[in-house]
Nucleic acid binder design. Structure first.
Length: 426
DNA sequence: TCTGGGGTCCTAGGACCC
DNA sequence: TCTGGGGTCCTAGGACCC
């Protein structure tokens, strides 16, 4: 056998995490909501059967919730993050070459010399059983010669197997039955353009010429085609490759018209950004601030929906007060009277380790040292006493309620907070 | 009334350089 | 009046992902 990739994907991950600690809802339909309890971002199979789509606004399904006694949860990222690392640890024990691709999936690179197909199947069925027993999370495993095919194999494992494992070969007949939009890398726009030329199934797509793909879809298209034909273009990505950007952004629960409110918002997110940067021991040399108008309002045709500005910082920083001061300056610049703003965000680029900061002739480093110790104290207090115990005044007085996210139906932090630990009555 | 957040990669086009 | 060719670097915006 040549090299094979396996994609291990947790089924309905957030819903499965909720279920894992709560036997009462093992057979109930479950939905998990996005930030601010805005829309559905995870569904159990029972909820999918009821026709609830990914991303459906919550208010659209309120009557369904009552009718079918759907269990509703706000997202509990502490719980999901911890459950994720438990699953990933088990995978790491079983395979040296692993790429944790997202909170609920990982690619494994399988040893090419070891085994035949039957053994491969058996080993992975066992892996799946182990994960289920140790965490309560059901997973599906797709195996194929390339990452893109492994993704497809995973889709097949979920859809059409009992044991949750599927091995897919590039010449398989089943590719005729898979629509192109199931392919990793083909979104709405690519799908529409391909459909126009009569390409509907994955098998259709694999027959297209590389030249045509190159002219229509560029290098991205060609790589996608090769991967589907069984020629690997994407290897595992190691964790050494650092993140390039860190972002904090939120939608408002109501439209915002006032500059002062936007400044409170951006100050709050700049505070979060500072905390994130310091947690990763990184500083940023470049900030992008963006504002978005409410896309669900009727905008004039000439009205812009997206406003952004990128600035270079004279000295890389992770200090909250500097992030606030730069970002409010930019917000003042971007603000236009009479626009319904719905979302604001701040993106930190040019990340670098905090202990390596390039000096600048015109900026004093002493100030930076003082700031560092101030931030250290603030973080210490807020970790010990709870978030927002101390904060900058520009975030606004009522910040605790106003900019904090809505989470009406959050389950306990079963695994990360002592007082939430599961109690069992005997 | 209520519509998520956080990422990556690629390309086109402009500014600038020799 | 004529006005090159080859680069790099940057940003905005579009596409995709979970």
């Amino acid at each position: 056998m040549s090299t094979y990739f396996a994609l291990v994907d947790c089924n309905n991950f957030y819903a499965s995490c909720e279920r894992s600690f709560n036997p009462k809802i093992w057979n109930s339909p479950i939905v998990v909501l996005s930030n601010n309890d805005g829309c559905v971002i995870a569904r159990s199979n029972e909820a999918k059967t009821l026709g609830i789509g990914m991303g459906t606004p919550f208010w659209e399904i309120k009557s369904l919730v009552l009718k079918h006694k759907i269990q509703v949860y706000s997202s509990n990222y502490q719980l999901y993050g911890d459950m994720s690392s438990r699953v990933m640890n088990i995978l790491q024990d079983s395979c040296m070459d692993i790429e944790v691709y997202s909170i609920d999936e990982a690619f494994l690179k399988l040893n090419p010399f070891k085994i035949n197909e039957d053994q491969l199947m058996q080993e992975n069925i066992i892996l799946r059983t182990n994960i289920l027993r140790a965490t309560g999370i059901p997973v599906s495993i797709g195996i194929a010669p390339t990452k893109t095919l492994a993704k497809l194999a995973n889709h097949l494992a979920k859809k059409s197997t009992q044991n949750g494992v599927y091995i897919l070969e590039p010449d398989s007949d089943i590719l005729k039955d898979i629509p192109i939009e199931k392919v990793w890398g083909i979104g709405k726009s690519f799908q529409r353009r391909l459909a126009k030329t009569g390409v509907k199934s994955v098998a259709d797509l694999t027959k297209i010429s590389r030249q045509w793909m190159a002219s229509e879809f560029g290098v991205v298209g060609v790589r996608l085609l090769k991967e589907l034909q069984g020629f690997s273009c994407y290897d595992l990505e190691t964790p050494i490759s650092q993140r390039k950007n860190i972002m904090v952004s939120r939608s408002f629960s109501k439209d915002v018209f006032q500059l002062s409110e936007l400044i409170e918002g951006i100050s709050t997110y700049a505070t979060r950004l500072g905390e994130k940067l310091r947690r990763h021991n990184q500083s940023t040399g470049q900030l992008t601030i963006f504002l978005m108008a409410n896309p669900f309002r009727n905008l004039r045709p000439d009205q812009k929906k997206y406003f952004s500005r990128t600035i270079e910082l004279p000295l890389a920083t992770c200090a909250t007060n500097e992030l606030i001061s730069w970002s409010s300056k930019v917000i003042r610049f971007l603000f236009e009277e009479g626009t319904n703003y719905k979302k604001v965000g701040i993106l930190a680029g040019r990340l670098r380790p905090s202990d390596y900061i390039q000096g600048n002739l015109f900026v004093s480093l002493d100030k930076e040292k003082k700031l560092k110790s101030l931030m250290k104290s603030m973080d210490a207090i807020n970790t010990l006493q709870g978030r927002n115990k101390v904060y900058f005044a520009s975030c606004g007085e009522k910040k605790k309620t106003k900019w904090a996210r809505k989470e009406q139906w959050c389950s306990p932090r079963y695994t990360t907070r002592w007082k939430d630990i599961l109690k069992i009555k005997i």
